[in-house]
Write a protein that binds this DNA or RNA. Structure first.
Lengths: 162, 162
DNA sequence: ATATTGTTTAGAAAAATTATTAAGAATTAT
DNA sequence: ATAATTCTTAATAATTTTTCTAAACAATAT
């Protein structure tokens, strides 16, 4: 039940990008240094977040990565799903990537004990992780799962996809 | 956030052993067949559960493995901790195997956003998994987290350790 | 043009997971 | 005692996943 390094790095990067939201772009090397993340690995992480529409980027001087969604609109659970896949402990209880079990003696009976327990676990995990916005997450206070505050979108021409 | 094969197999094996509780011993090959588990892998799993004091075993004819703790006294969370280690997504929020983070920029500030979120996740997971006894688990009904029923311990001379 | 910075793909290295093997020891039945 | 059965142990092989690196390429601003 472990959080991957990848997701941890991704969240730490987003911490920096949330601080800089609507202000400056951060180069991957800036983020890597601030958060002690291997720069090459960080690269692949940032690109995945970009493809998912959370980050934008621009090459060249003054370039770098930016958060293009308001931090009030991004959930920690979404970030982990992007980087690590479904939150569910087993595929047969995933909401976002359901798969039937093969070789499970209960798969036909429709009443599998493991599925029942893990269904609750999935919901418990998703309940917590989808209860934190990036903003609440970055503000650190325990359990500060704040609602949305007025969105002031910056007008940016940053690439949303590709 | 995935449940390992090992824990899944272990729980499935315990399903069989709970059914047979206070009645018969099951050979590893019986369990392996009933639950479609590779017999060699199952072996190492059963032994870990034995070392942890949950199972007893005896060689020879009529031998096999038995549950030596009442299924009302064993929690699903305990089983997964034995087989997979701590439930916590990251070591710095584990109750049973706490470890400080190294290289985490927040580790000294005592106010790490990741730690805060993952603390909640750990509690959510443990809350569910420690809410199911083996008995409730094996009886399959959704959310049937029953309290303890009268314990009728069988008098057995089965090895508890070694 | 040139320096800067992101993009993409491929894949190497390391670690963890999953599984197997084989020699050995305990128990029961005869 | 002997043999058949079954668990025991340790080593390690195979596979998969995770983590990370490299290098050629493309876009941007000055």
């Amino acid at each position: 039940m472990r959080l991957s390094r990848k997701s941890e790095y991704g969240l730490r990067a987003l911490l920096e990008l949330t601080k800089a939201y609507d202000q400056v772009a951060l180069r991957r090397s800036d983020i890597a240094e601030a958060q002690h993340i291997p720069v090459g690995f960080l690269e692949t992480i940032l690109l995945e977040l970009k493809r998912a529409g959370i980050l934008g980027s621009r090459p060249g001087v003054q370039g770098g990565y930016r958060l293009i969604k308001p931090p009030e609109d991004v959930l920690v659970g979404q970030v982990i799903r992007i980087l690590d896949g479904p939150l569910a402990p087993i595929p047969c209880v995933s909401q976002t990537a359901y798969q039937t079990c093969q070789d499970c003696p209960y798969s036909e009976a429709r009443d599998c004990p493991i599925q029942n327990v893990m269904f609750d676990v999935r919901n418990a995990i998703a309940g917590v992780l989808d209860g934190y916005t990036l903003r609440a997450f970055s503000e650190r206070g325990r359990n500060r799962r704040v609602g949305k505050s007025p969105q002031h979108r910056g007008n940016n021409a940053w690439s949303r996809t590709q």
